[in-house]
């Protein structure tokens, strides 16, 4: 189902998606939230689509023109944040990742969060975890041999190494179900704050543009390199609150898997990509920074909402 509109642009676009009358849409969102939910829905046409939207609209030129306008504004804002960051001075990708400091939702879950707060985070996270790694898979055909092979090595593991029962979407879905939550694709989009929509949209932006493939790889490496320890904290928090083991097991899997993925993503994927494409350094770092920055903004928003920061 299409999300609920969050302003005049999303209202007009969601109506047009159902009628097919897309010719007169103007990319003039009334707010950041209006822009992000519209962009999220337009990207979703390339993933699973919506029952009430004609699949042919995925490649509708008027919708693509509209999407392009929203993407340009979003990318300009992401680049503005990157240009203003002291992490621009970081030498290596690992220096950038280690140098980033932000509030940690995982630490809060580990020690203090209550059950309702954790359920809220899980509903927000379901937007990405139910299509985990899919945005990065767009990048595969755009890479040369030496970078493509190690990226596939990691993605194969994300997709369960050939076993559907170990596929990460499935592990998260089992966790949601055991925790009494809904499990259908994107079913909690209307609860997602603008920060979560932006997190998801950045992944799709980087994944769908060949020009930004370096940013997609940088984002992926930063995500994997900051996952193992927070995943352990989340698993501990879930067990502290006596969540079903299926939910904690999803995070247990990420403690172990992402310890591997981190090494391969940094060394064999980004390292090799930068050796072969030295001029892409800034784009790779933009992607890594954007991952860390958007995660920090989400954490800050939630901790502020709960009055803990």
């Amino acid at each position: 189902m299409l999300p609920k509109s969050r302003g005049t642009l999303s209202a007009a676009v969601f109506t047009a998606l159902q009628s097919g009358a897309t010719a007169d849409l103007v990319p003039a969102p009334e707010s950041e939230e209006d822009a992000q939910v519209t962009l999220w829905a337009l990207y979703e046409l390339h993933y699973r689509g919506f029952d009430e939207v004609d699949p042919d609209l995925e490649w509708d030129p008027d919708l693509l023109r509209l999407r392009r306008g929203l993407e340009r504004s979003f990318e300009t804002e992401l680049r503005r944040r990157w240009d203003a960051s002291p992490l621009r001075e970081a030498g290596e990708l690992t220096d950038l990742i280690d140098g980033h400091d932000g509030p940690s939702l995982a630490r809060f879950v580990q020690r203090k969060a209550d059950r309702e707060q954790v359920l809220e985070i899980l509903r927000h996270r379901s937007l990405y975890h139910l299509k985990e790694a899919d945005p990065t898979s767009w990048v595969v055909p755009r890479l040369d041999t030496r970078v493509k092979a190690p990226l596939m090595e990691i993605l194969f593991d994300e997709y369960g190494d050939g076993d559907p029962n170990r596929l990460h979407h499935h592990l998260f879905r089992r966790g949601l179900e055991a925790a009494g939550l809904r499990t259908d694709h994107a079913c909690y989009v209307d609860e997602a704050p603008v920060e979560v929509l932006a997190l998801n949209n950045a992944l799709s932006l980087f994944g769908l543009h060949r020009r930004l493939r370096g940013a997609a790889l940088g984002h992926f490496a930063a995500f994997e390199a900051t996952s193992s320890i927070p995943s352990r904290q989340l698993a501990q928090g879930l067990r502290r609150l006596e969540f079903p083991d299926e939910m904690a097991a999803y995070y247990d899997e990420h403690v172990e898997a992402d310890s591997v993925h981190e090494q391969v993503a940094l060394r064999d994927v980004c390292g090799a990509f930068l050796e072969e494409n030295p001029s892409e350094r800034d784009t790779v770092h933009l992607g890594a920074f954007t991952c860390l920055d958007l995660e920090a903004r989400y954490a800050h928003a939630m901790l502020t909402q709960w009055g803990v920061s």
Partner: peptide, 28 residues
């Protein structure tokens, strides 16, 4: 069970023999 596995070398992992990222805390 994976195409690539990471074996703990710092001796501090909680899921030995596999790595759990603890070495990052040690180096920090």
């Amino acid at each position: 069970v994976r195409p690539v596995s990471a074996v703990c070398m710092c001796g501090r992992s909680a899921i030995k023999p596999w790595c759990d990222g603890t070495h990052r805390l040690l180096s920090a």
